[in-house]
């Protein structure tokens, strides 16, 4: 039995301990904002915050996170999250939208650690998040806008 908190609520899981956190979140907890894109930590669509740090849930066996705190796109809150989501809407960043939960989770984590990132810092933090629609140009701009709004 694995016990963890998911978006602030205590949850338990007693299925196959190898089950990746991604599939626990989606199939068992029915939170579908966190996406499957590759299953091998190459695309970042499954990014969550694990004990406050960005983490690819697709390569995180549930047994590994006993006692941990998991936040998904449905549970993010705070000024960084608000600033990022507002900036994303302001620039209409998403196209197909499938990768954007992961993009936002990475962007929020970056701003929590670096409130005013440079272009290089944005690229450094976001290289793990693929977007096949290539919305990167707007993602970069939106992160700057979010940083400016927080400073604001």
């Amino acid at each position: 039995m694995v016990t963890f908190t998911l978006n602030g609520k205590t949850r338990t899981f007693d299925g196959d301990p190898e089950t990746p956190l991604l599939w626990v979140i989606r199939d068992f907890e029915k939170l579908t904002g966190t996406k499957y894109g590759c299953g091998v930590a190459q695309c970042g669509a499954c990014t969550v915050h694990l004990d406050g740090m960005p983490r690819r849930s697709c390569i995180t066996p549930i047994a590994m996170i006993d006692g941990s705190d998991v936040i998904t796109i449905e549970g993010i809150a705070g000024k960084e999250a608000e600033a990022v989501q507002t900036a994303w809407a302001g620039l209409d960043v998403p196209q197909c939208g499938y990768c954007q939960s992961g993009q936002i989770m990475s962007a929020v984590a970056l701003l929590q650690m670096v409130p005013k990132p440079t272009d290089d810092e944005i690229d450094g933090a976001m290289t793990g998040n693929l977007c096949r629609c290539a919305t990167y140009h707007r993602i970069r701009a939106a992160i700057h806008n979010a940083a400016n709004a927080m400073e604001g």
């Binding site: 930590a41 740090m53 690819r56 995180t60 290289t127």
Partner: peptide, 29 residues
């Protein structure tokens, strides 16, 4: 994915080694 040295060789902020790597080898099923 492209990762870089960063502080103490632990990766750049937001893309640190432990974004993907754990304390043990993890099977990909």
């Amino acid at each position: 994915p492209p990762v870089f040295r960063g502080d103490a060789g632990m990766g750049l902020v937001g893309m640190q080694c432990n974004t993907c790597h754990s304390e043990q080898n993890t099977p990909v099923v």
